[in-house]
């Protein structure tokens, strides 16, 4: 079996690498959120104990700055942990994670990212959910980065076991052949395709210049 993603052996290697990477991301995300995050909380609480201390002016200023820095660090840890692997994906499943991802993406980019879903979506194995989540992450980030989209829709449906995931934007669109030459975009597209195939799904991407791009994954569960 040979295709654009390389030989069969190299594909197996890629799969193992991807799955190992996800395991590691999950571990790191938890460690950051529950480990470092709690230590920071401890610092925050101890700092608060100095609330009524008799500081002079410059000490008081340091104290205020310190407090703000700790809060900022807690927020950063939350964000980095979320980017690595959202806890909500493991704890509440794919739809919850996609909704949160869309909300955050909207907030950060100012582009409207809308998530909707239909059908029963809660009985999937974790690795399937992770791959679908990463595909959405990659597709939405591409749209935000290159497509100048105003609106991105993420739609997840399950119709009696036929699962369809679609990410559509109204951006500039592109010529697939041209894009294949750009290494970074090319590898992103291949990654999505590989992930889709890994969970036994089919991957499609269609793009029309000045109209927008649709990425879709279909699989039977």
């Amino acid at each position: 079996m040979k295709d654009e993603t390389g030989s069969y052996e190299s594909r197996i290697r890629t799969i193992a690498l991807l799955e190992g990477q996800e395991e590691e991301r999950k571990r790191l995300a938890r460690e950051l959120h529950d480990g470092v995050g709690q230590l920071l909380t401890g610092i925050r609480l101890q700092l608060d104990c100095l609330h009524n201390a008799a500081f002079n002016e410059s000490q008081l200023e340091s104290y205020q700055v310190l407090k703000e820095l700790v809060l900022e660090t807690i927020e950063t840890v939350r964000q980095v942990s979320f980017d690595l692997m959202p806890g909500v994906l493991t704890d509440f499943g794919l739809p919850a994670a996609l909704r949160l991802f869309s909300e955050k993406a909207t907030k950060v980019s100012g582009v409207e990212v809308i998530f909707s879903s239909q059908g029963n979506l809660f009985q999937w194995p974790e690795n399937l959910e992770i791959h679908l989540y990463r595909i959405v992450q990659e597709a939405v980030n591409n749209s935000l980065k290159y497509a100048k989209a105003k609106k991105i829709e993420v739609i997840l449906t399950n119709n009696g076991g036929a699962v369809n995931l679609r990410i559509t934007d109204d951006g500039t669109g592109f010529d697939l052949k041209e894009v294949q030459k750009k290494k970074s975009v090319h590898s992103g597209l291949n990654n999505m395709k590989l992930r889709a195939e890994l969970i036994g799904g089919s991957f499609e991407i269609s793009s029309v210049k000045k109209k927008g791009t649709t990425v879709s994954v279909q699989l039977n569960t």
Partner: peptide, 28 residues
């Protein structure tokens, strides 16, 4: 605003909606 959530969890009256995620995984 959380349409995804409502449909994700299905009908809240079904017996399965009472199960935790881990339990559902085991049931599967």
């Amino acid at each position: 605003r959380s349409r995804g959530r409502a449909s994700a969890r299905g009908n809240d009256d079904t017996p399965l909606s009472k199960l935790s995620r881990k339990e559902r995984q085991i049931l599967t």
